[in-house]
Design a protein around this nucleic acid. Structure first.
Length: 116
DNA sequence: GCCTTGACATGCG
DNA sequence: ACGCATGCCAAGG
């Protein structure tokens, strides 16, 4: 698979995420046929914020633990993501430190690879 | 062409 | 349950 194809696959998979559902980088990687490329999934996602048409629900993608990645303390990206998820009705668990996490047992979206 | 970086995952202590 | 260490692979310098 080419790098461009990889990006396209990530975009397409993220777009397939239904509303009020969240998935993890690892699962995205599995869905596109690359279980070990979890990191590059996010790497592609950061590109989505640059103005993608149609808009991709990248905020529905979190780490395997259900925690939202930092992406830089200076940026409010993580906070925005948490807010966006809450706005969609996703159960966001806010820890004492203000870190937002999602409950996979409630809003987890994990389709089997190949059925997508 | 080599080295560093990275929105991660998994295993072990 | 939490923190640290290792593995993975591609993109950018």
């Amino acid at each position: 698979m080419d790098s461009a194809e990889f990006h396209a696959a990530v975009y397409d998979t993220v777009r397939l995420i239904p509303a009020q559902k969240v998935t993890s980088y690892g699962h995205i990687a599995k869905l596109i046929g690359m279980p070990n490329h979890s990191r590059h999934v996010g790497q592609a996602l950061k590109f989505l914020t640059s103005g993608t048409t149609p808009p991709v629900p990248w905020h529905r993608v979190v780490s395997s633990s259900g925690a939202i990645s930092s992406r830089g303390p200076g940026t409010d990206g993580a906070r925005r993501q948490g807010e966006a998820l809450e706005a969609e009705g996703v159960e966001v668990t806010v820890t004492g430190a203000g870190e937002r996490k999602v409950d996979f047992s409630v809003c987890g979206w994990f389709p089997a690879p190949g059925t997508v």
